[in-house]
């Protein structure tokens, strides 16, 4: 099992984070983001306990926070985590169709990951880019005015390269 602790480099980021807040606990959200970045986009078992110790709080508090926010995951996402905006204005200007297309193309419903672990799909709420509909976020990358052709080509290429 992988070690449940930040490496030295990440630890330096942790120290910087702590220095930006009056209390260690205030840094919990950025710490959780950092932990996910270091662990392929999720929080493997043990990280809640580790982070709780690190900022001097209880495991229960950390779990409460993790379950409250959409972005924190206790299940491993696909290598490419796709969030498609299907909210109010996007939904009626192509977002709904794009989501359906992706479900079909990937063979999964939102909330799931493809068997090869390459893609996971999520239905997003408004991503603050409604004028660029349809939009989707792939990991940290916001893609605007997405066309089916573009998506198909990207999926094909990702599948053939396996990454």
């Amino acid at each position: 099992m992988a070690k449940v602790a930040f490496n030295d480099e990440a630890m330096r980021e942790v120290e910087t984070l702590f220095s930006r807040y009056p209390k260690k606990i205030n840094a919990l959200l950025p710490l959780l983001h950092l932990a996910q970045r270091e662990n392929e986009g999720w929080l493997p078992p043990g990280w809640d306990t580790y982070l709780a110790k690190l900022c001097g709080t209880t495991v229960n508090h950390v779990r409460g926070v993790v379950t409250f926010y959409n972005m924190f995951r206790t299940v491993k996402p696909g290598r490419h985590h796709i969030m498609v905006c299907n909210c109010l204005p996007c939904g009626v200007t192509g977002g709904g169709a794009l989501l359906e297309h992706l479900e079909h193309k990937l063979g999964i419903h939102p909330g799931n990951t493809t068997e090869d672990g390459l893609f996971s799909l999520e239905e997003a709420q408004c991503l603050a880019a409604c004028d660029q509909a349809p939009v989707m976020m792939v990991n940290e990358d916001l893609r605007k005015k997405v066309t089916f052709d573009e998506v198909d080509a990207w999926i094909k290429q990702t599948r053939s390269s396996g990454e």
């Binding site: 209390k23 606990i25 205030n26 840094a27 919990l28 959200l29 950025p30 959780l32 983001h33 900022c55 709080t57 508090h61 409460g64 926070v65 409250f68 926010y69 959409n70 972005m71 924190f72 709420q125």
Partner: peptide
């Protein structure tokens, strides 16, 4: 950074979120 919760736009929820809470 927030973490995906519309309600954190409400100012007191935002403060709790900034403090490291739900």
């Amino acid at each position: 950074p927030g973490a995906g919760a519309y309600i954190c736009g409400e100012e007191t929820a935002l403060l709790d979120s900034l403090e490291g809470k739900r």
